[in-house]
Computed example of a mutant assay.
Amino acid sequence: MHTLSATASSSLSLGQDNYIYSIAAASPNSFAAISSDDSLRVFDAAGLGHVSVAAADAHKGVTSLKSYDVGQQLIATGGRDGHVKLWDLRNGKKSAVVEVETSRDAPVLSVACCPETNTLAAGTELVSSQAIVTFWDVRSPSHPQLQYVESHNDDVTELQFHPTRHNVLLSGSTDGLVNIYNTTITDEDEALVQVINHGSVHHAGFLSERAIYALSHDEVFSIHPATDPDEEGEAPNPVQFGDLRQPLNCEYIAQLCVGSQGPYIAAGNKMENQLDLIPLTPNPSWQFDQDNLWRLPGAHGEEVVRSVYLDEQSQSVFTCGEDGFVRAWKPESGEIPADESKTSRPKRNKDRGRFKPY
C-alpha cells in the first residue's frame, strides 16, 4: 500500500452547506468545478488558489461538467434546464460561447465532447416516455445534428466517446443498458452496434480501445469486450465482479479513473474517513491489485467524495466532495498513479447519503 498526503484544501469561496459535484481540467494548470449553488468556478492547480467565478448561475440545476479542449480552455456543462453550454475560459466574459437546448427542454444528465469532430452530445432524463441522446456540431449549433430517441427507456446517466474512434459513442442508463453507437449512421437501429445489460448505470466508459466497464448504482462492476462487427468468432466472456463493497472494503465507488499507468477504482469509506485508488490490472485477466493501492487518509471526512482527477503534470491527485472542499494530494514517496493545511467544516445534521443529480 502507498499513501498520499493532503497538501492543500479550498472551499473555492463557496457558501456554507454547498458541496462540489465535479472537477475537470480547464487548462494544463487549472481546473473547473460545478457545485450545488449552480456555479461554475475556476481555480489554479498550484495551491488551489486564484479562484474565479466563471458563472454564478451556469444552469438552473447544473448536473454535468466535461473538458472540451484543455489546450483551448474550453469547458462543457449541462443542466436540468435542458441546456448544454460551451464556455471559453480565456475570454473572461463569464458567458457561454455556445448554448444549445434539448427537445422539450428535457433535463440534461450527462454530456460528452469530441473536439476532433466539433461535437457536443447530451443524454437526458426520461420525459414523455423518451430519454434522448442528442448531438450538435458546435460550428452550427442552432439545430441538432443527430438524435437517438429509442435506445434507452430511462434516464441517460453516462456518455463517453471512444478514445481513438471518434465516431463511436457509449451511453449508459438507469434502464440497465450500456449502448455503443456508430454515430456516422443516422438510422438508430443500424447505429447501435453493441448492447450490454448490466443494471442501473451510475458510470460506464472505455477502459481501453477494446474494453468497456460498467458500474451500477448499487456498486456492481463488470468489464466487457468491445465487439467489432467486422471480426469473426466469439468475443471473450465479460468479467463479472459483482458488488465491490465487500471485496474492496468500501461503502461506495466514486468513479473509475484511467491514466497512463492503467485504470484505478476510487473506493470510498466514510466510516473510516478514507479513499483508496485501487489499480485494475488486465493480466492474465482483469483483477484488482489491492497490494498496490494508493490510500488518501482522511479523504473528505464523513462526506462522499464526488470526483477524482489524476494529474500527471503536477504529480498530484485532486478530489472534491460533499464537504464542499477541493483537496490536493501528493505521494509521501515515489510516483503517483497517473490519468487524469487541512480544513474542515462542521458536519451538517441532515443525512443525504450519495447525492444523485438525476
Rank of each mutant, 00 (worst) to 15 (best):
S142R: 14
P115W: 10
E150N: 14
E158A: 15
L159T: 04
L126S: 13
H143Y: 10
L126M: 15
D155Q: 07
L126Y: 11
Q145F: 13
V138Q: 07
F135S: 03
P115E: 12
E125S: 06
E125P: 09
E116D: 11
S142D: 12
S129P: 07
I132E: 01
T117F: 06
D154S: 11
T117C: 06
R139A: 08
S142T: 14
C113N: 04
L120V: 04
V149E: 00
C114E: 03
D155F: 08
V138W: 03
S110H: 07
H152W: 03
T157S: 14
S151M: 08
T157D: 10
W136S: 01
Q160I: 02
L120K: 09
W136L: 05
Q160G: 14
N118L: 12
S142C: 14
P141G: 01
Q145L: 11
Q147W: 03
W136F: 08
T157C: 11
G123Q: 08
G123C: 06
Q130S: 12
R139F: 05
V111C: 03
D137I: 13
E158L: 04
E125H: 09
F161R: 14
C114F: 05
S140Y: 08
P141C: 00
P115G: 13
V111F: 05
W136I: 04
F161K: 13
Q145I: 05
T117H: 13
T124A: 00
H162N: 14
V111D: 05
L146P: 11
H152D: 04
T124G: 01
D154M: 02
Q160L: 03
H152R: 04
T119L: 13
A131H: 01
S151Y: 01
H143G: 10
T157I: 08
E150P: 00
T119I: 09
T134R: 06
C113D: 03
L126D: 05
V138K: 08
P163W: 10
I132T: 09
V156I: 15
L126C: 13
E158F: 09
S142V: 07
T134V: 04
T124E: 00
D155A: 05
R139V: 10
N118F: 10
H162T: 12
H162G: 14
A112E: 01
T124R: 01
L146I: 09
E125M: 05
T157M: 13
S140T: 14
Q147F: 06
L120P: 13
L120Q: 05
S129W: 11
L120E: 01
S151F: 06
A112F: 01
G123H: 08
A122L: 02
D155G: 05
N118E: 09
D137Y: 12
Y148R: 02
D155E: 09
S151R: 12
S110W: 04
P115A: 11
P163L: 09
